[in-house]
Write a protein that binds this DNA or RNA. Sequence first.
RNA 1: CGGGGUGUGGCGCAGCCCGGUAGCGCGCCUGCUUUGGGAGCAGGAGGCCCCCGGUUCGAAUCCGGGCACCCCGACCA
Length: 569
Amino acid sequence: MRVSRFLSKTLRQDPGEAETASHRLMLRAGMMMQMGAGIYSYLPLALRSIKKIEAIIREEIDAAGGQEVLMPALQPIEAWQQSGRDVAFGDNMFHVFDRRKREMVIAPTHEEAITLIATANVESYRDLPLLLYQIQTKFRDEPRPRAGLLRGREFTMKDAYSFDTDQEALDVTYQRMRIAYRNIFRRCGLPTLEVEADSGAIGGKDSHEFIMPAESGEDTVLVCPTGDYAANAERATSVIPPAPESAPQEMTLVDTPGAKTIADLVDSMGITEAQTLKAVFYAADKEVVLVTIRGDIEVNEVKLKNLLEVRELRLATPEESVAAGLTPGSTSPIGLTGIKRVGDKSIQQGNNFVAGANQADEHYKNVNYPRDFEVDTIAEIGTSKAGDGCPNCGAALDEVRGIEVGHVFKLGTFFTRTFGGDYLDDAGKLNPMVMGCYGIGVTRVLAAAIEQNHDDKGILYPAPIAPFQVHLVALNADKEEVSTAADATYAQLLELGYDVLYDDRLGESAGVKFNDVDLLGLPVRVVISPRNIKNGVVEVKRRRDDESAQVAAADLPATLAAALAQDEL
RNA sequence: CGGGGUGUGGCGCAGCCCGGUAGCGCGCCUGCUUUGGGAGCAGGAGGCCCCCGGUUCGAAUCCGGGCACCCCGACCA
């Protein structure tokens, strides 16, 4: 492609609305254009990368036994009513009405549609396993779209769904998909962590997320440096730091004027956070629940929500706490009845705690569980953090921020039971198919790739997903010797099968062209100039390197191939 | 949905308090000179000042109402 004919124009200044690196760089590089909150047109540069990512995905999912289909985005609402997910998705789903005022939805995901396909086509165990996938546009009315392609309301997703005879067969498919995912991200040139994940409301047992480490990521992951454990912080378990233990003392009431927080207690009593208990109130589907946890640990709301099996969970308001008989600032499980009480297992590690007394300006000291108070349930509901021990080997866990680009999980039989997705087994009995589902946010992969690979001048694409592999630059292109040589090199590189962006612009200075090269971030730059022609060389520079190499024209193909191969993982 | 912020040529911004011909930088067009890290000179094109209503002789500016977008928190690929 000649730059002189190319649609995309670069901007010299950062656009005002964009703060996140990928968002800012994609707008500056002319890759995309915004049309609304979380809604973008993909211009040629972005679309070329997206297609390369899609091609890699197709190859790997096909290799794993997948068959590509394409399901409608526009769907009658009935299927969603049948699964109950019209309510579950709520405002996250776009609704429209057809001319006869029938309600339709624009699908945010395709479990309903795929289950109907499988149900209609699978009759016996001989038709299984079945793995179907599509690459399609998803529509989700996100509460807060953000950061360009990182979280859009319309985005491209690869979603795959597997159907198996039973749990054991699903396990095999699931493992095959995990491997396919590893291959996909490796081939894209994008280091990605595979971590244990929360499977959410519908979820089955197993769930793994693929996370690309990046500062701007919305997810926090705990990783063991030995490599034997990695999990999303939402579900990570860990060995918590020990708390001091001593011979149990008698529980006594102490005056704590003005002390309302754990920090106040630590300051005024000369103790550590691990020597306190905190009581936290939650509103769980209207019911108020008291959580007691050691003062140095934070409640993990995802774990708590899963434990309580509720749909909605939030901190109780002070009014709700008071109404439940509590004293904010000195809330306590001691002597409390008539309310659901949950204890984190951390209260079993350590003793002689300082805890609230349900009276302003008073606390108890030397509180011991279970001697001094009861809970209805004890479970692990604390948040793991950096420095905690790995659950497998005890080594201190590291914390990494990242972007979720893929998610695989075992769905089970919810949808097949709902839609009558039964098959006949070899004994002639009907059983529901067991499903798995597997997503990759294709457009998010592109944004995450840029988050992961950029510097202060621009993007640094890994070669496999770069919109073009080579940025050919003609300096002083209005000189005939230059345009002749550059045109010939362009033709040669195309002949060799490379994707080439050829900056043939006549009037632009070297500075302008080089800055565009750095901004667009194609993996290799090739410069044709009067100076290089005089010296009988072409100049080759990787975007990631500081130095360029001068090579004889005859050596250009080999030099290019070597430079591009360096991005492979 | 709560909190914070912004809407002015393609992009980045000023003007708004204190109403009176809409301005700057970049980009764009023409010509000449220049040409290895965002060139110079000269000439030029381009604006429903987010929308609706009000006040006023007169509104980008004041008042009321709406809309859009961005950022921070609860959700997800």
